[in-house]
Nucleic acid binder design. Structure first.
Lengths: 198, 198
DNA sequence: TAGTTAATCATAACACTGTTATGTCAGTCA
DNA sequence: TGACTGACATAACAGTGTTATGATTAACTA
């Protein structure tokens, strides 16, 4: 019953990792999975359904990469560790990452379930980001800071995917991102520092 | 001679602004331009050629948006003005922006001419970014800072395009980006400040 | 047990995509 | 005049996602 489903999903995931979205045609998936094209439609909601699964798969990777809350290092280093994990996942699962941010297949828009996964990951990011903020910080402000960090990190990843990346010296993008983020996080910390009581 | 060329290009640009990449099929362009599909291939290098023109068009918009060097305001404000222009262009020409950053049509990769335009724009960004750095700063360091700013701004724009944008309060994304960038630029300035002579 | 119902699968087709082979026609140049 | 080059049109090819049609199988029900 769910045997064919897993076979299809495995075939899709493999093709996706190998050749990205361009290698992910319905016929290619069904061929590798050893089923007919109609199988994609009886077990999933067509190609949209397949992409949804991969979208969720990608966010799960990101989610687990940020799983570093239970260390007792300085908060600054904890966050940088989370960013490092994010960058690693983005590099290792580039096709998934591109899909998540619309660089994979124009015309795909995530379903409700896929969006729920994205929301879950963002909440985790908010939790991590909150570590550098005073406890009584409002939720909106916490989200603002989390968005700030996310935008910065994602900006590096996305620029790296851009064709212009060849123009820039082949230095490690990840270390560039990490040092820039370190600077910015320090700026956030000092800005939100509890003022000394008079 | 170049009459048909302009007609085709105009039709393509209109379709692109109206419906993005999904509305930009070779047949749709030729139909609106009143020519045969083969016209796209005799006047351009197929769809790739059309996308190249739009890619360059997009970078030209970005380029001119950063055209604020000749003001004599504080450098910090000059840069923020450039960023404001960048954000405005990104919002107004979303389809172009998505195309530039691979969110438009997977499988498209810019030609040499298109990349040259991108390089030109990046150099301008480096020039602007250099305003907050000491004059004797090395080129590599200037590029590093420019990349930093670009990544941050682009990160906001790209996240705004992401489906998760609905999760976040509908506050103006641009003002969020501007305030975050202001914080970061201040951090850069203080970090690169010429140390007081002992 | 017999009959109905639902899900799975295969074949083939439809409408769409970018691209191109073929052929026509007009203009240019030697 | 004759040869050639470029623009144009028609139609086709190979690919895409999707679905209508029909066959087979499994499960549940009367």
């Amino acid at each position: 019953m769910s045997d064919a489903r897993n076979t299809i999903l495995k075939a899709a995931s493999e093709l996706f990792l190998e050749g990205g979205t361009s290698a992910l045609s319905v016929r290619a998936i069904s061929k590798r999975a050893g089923v007919s094209t109609i199988g994609i439609y009886s077990h999933f909601k067509g190609k949209q359904g397949i992409l949804d699964e991969l979208y969720i798969e990608g966010f799960e990777k990101v989610f687990s990469a940020m799983d570093i809350l239970d260390t007792n290092a300085p908060v600054r280093d904890v966050i940088l560790l989370g960013i490092k994990g994010y960058l690693a996942v983005a590099g290792q699962y580039e096709a998934h990452y591109r899909l998540i941010f619309g660089e994979g297949d124009a015309g795909y828009s995530p379903s409700k379930e896929a969006l729920a996964m994205a929301e879950k990951a963002f909440k985790k990011l908010v939790d991590i980001s909150s570590l550098i903020l005073p406890e009584d910080t409002k939720v909106a402000e916490k989200q603002r800071i989390a968005l700030e960090i996310w935008a910065f990190v994602h900006g590096y990843v996305s620029l790296k995917h851009h064709a212009i990346s060849t123009l820039i010296s082949p230095v490690e993008w990840n270390s560039l991102a990490l040092s820039a983020l370190a600077t910015h996080i320090d700026a956030i910390i000092t800005k939100h520092a509890v003022p000394m009581p008079k």
